[in-house]
Design a protein around this nucleic acid. Structure first.
Lengths: 218, 218
DNA sequence: ATAAAAACCGGACGCATGAAATGTTACACT
DNA sequence: AGTGTAACATTTCATGCGTCCGGTTTTTAT
């Protein structure tokens, strides 16, 4: 495939360029076709790179998806850190805002990629090994973010369980929405779930401070 | 392979026997090796049946796993119906008991099989088609069971959201426990989550303040 | 009871796809 | 200009799914 361009690209440029193309193609494939269908050939074709060239950078499939997921994690963490800045100072507003942030994150297609990889990793020790480190960083960041977002709440009884339940509920809801087979489409469950989760967060103990009505978004 | 055959097995018997062996082997493989590694030959070897024999009953892989999952669903539904009988009549006891039932079900290895198949079905239209019907029956049964278990609660404000959140939370918690990669083992989250979920189920509807500001929007 | 028919089971082949080894081209340094 | 090294391309090997055909056991009809 004769490259017509006499452009003087340095090796570093070429290297970075093909790597970027390959990683983008990998993410695209994971999103649209799932992990099983994300084959080396398919990714190479999507990226417009020869299979052999790709094998040079990512010898095995695991290397490919591990690198891609690390890049994804970077983006996700950056987005989180950025959005965390926009949170209100009012404790009564902060919980609902955090919930919406969570839901936006979990209901995005990127969440499905992570889930698909968790499942695959359950039966693939090597992939598991590669994902564990990345996943750990994500979990830590989210935990830290959540902790500092609900800050003073931690002194109250049962905050640990409430945080656990809220996170699990959002995850479970997202899982159902994304993956559970349906014969007919169902209405968006978030408005109803959101209302209940705000109650859980606000908890009976400090109802006087949080009894103010929350804003309805969107 | 001369079976000296003093056994007078009727065709129906042979048929049922090999089918049972194959289906059991399929479930075993799904449990231990995941969907991707559940190959037709692997299952045949596990069942002690030749690939050709298996192909006679289940021409393609989809037929195999679809049949297996239907059998699993039967067992699961029967177990649920049976356990539902043992629930206490005391409304105060019934919610915790239902929660424990839920957790037992979702934290069992069988749950992981269903999840693995959901994920696989997301990128496999034919498998999706086959699973949708079965999954729908399960969802209906659980919904009906939960509804009649919390019976009179339905008259109270926000019961819809509470049920939704509780189910989602248990699902999400189970997902995390089963699949999220960890570098170190974590303590069992159920005791803490359980306590919070019981509150969610049973607590705030007694207070008049929360009942008023429910139904934010929809 | 026995022969014909049907059902059941076992092994093997073709096709497609995934991963890896080997060969070829382009760049950098002196 | 020439050589060593890194980037890229092609080829080969291994694995898994789906299907067919031959052999055997059970059923049915006389």
């Amino acid at each position: 495939m004769a490259v017509v361009t006499p452009t003087h690209r340095t090796q570093e440029q070429r290297r970075a360029e093909t790597q970027a193309k390959v990683l983008d193609a990998t993410i695209k494939s994971l999103l649209e076709d799932g992990y099983a269908q994300t084959t080396t050939r398919h990714v190479a074709a999507l990226a417009g790179v020869s299979p052999g060239a790709m094998a040079h950078y990512y010898p095995r499939r695991v290397d490919l998806v591990a690198s891609a997921i690390e890049r994804l994690a970077e983006q996700r963490l950056e987005a989180w850190a950025e959005l965390a800045e926009t949170l209100s100072d009012d404790p009564g507003e902060r919980a609902p805002a955090l919930l919406d942030l969570l839901w936006d994150d979990f209901s995005s297609p990127l969440f499905t990629v992570f889930v698909k990889l968790w499942i695959a990793a359950a039966d693939d020790p090597e992939l598991y090994q590669r994902l564990a480190d990345t996943e750990r960083r994500i979990a830590r960041t989210i935990a830290r973010l959540a902790a500092q977002s609900i800050g003073e709440m931690q002194s109250q009884a049962g905050w640990e369980g409430r945080l656990l339940v809220v996170l699990a509920a959002v995850r479970g809801l997202a899982l159902t929405e994304h993956f559970e087979p349906r014969t007919e489409p169902l209405p968006d469950p978030w408005p109803i779930a959101r209302a209940t989760l705000i109650e859980v967060f606000a908890s009976p103990q400090n109802r006087k401070t949080t009894a103010r009505r929350e804003r309805t978004r969107r």
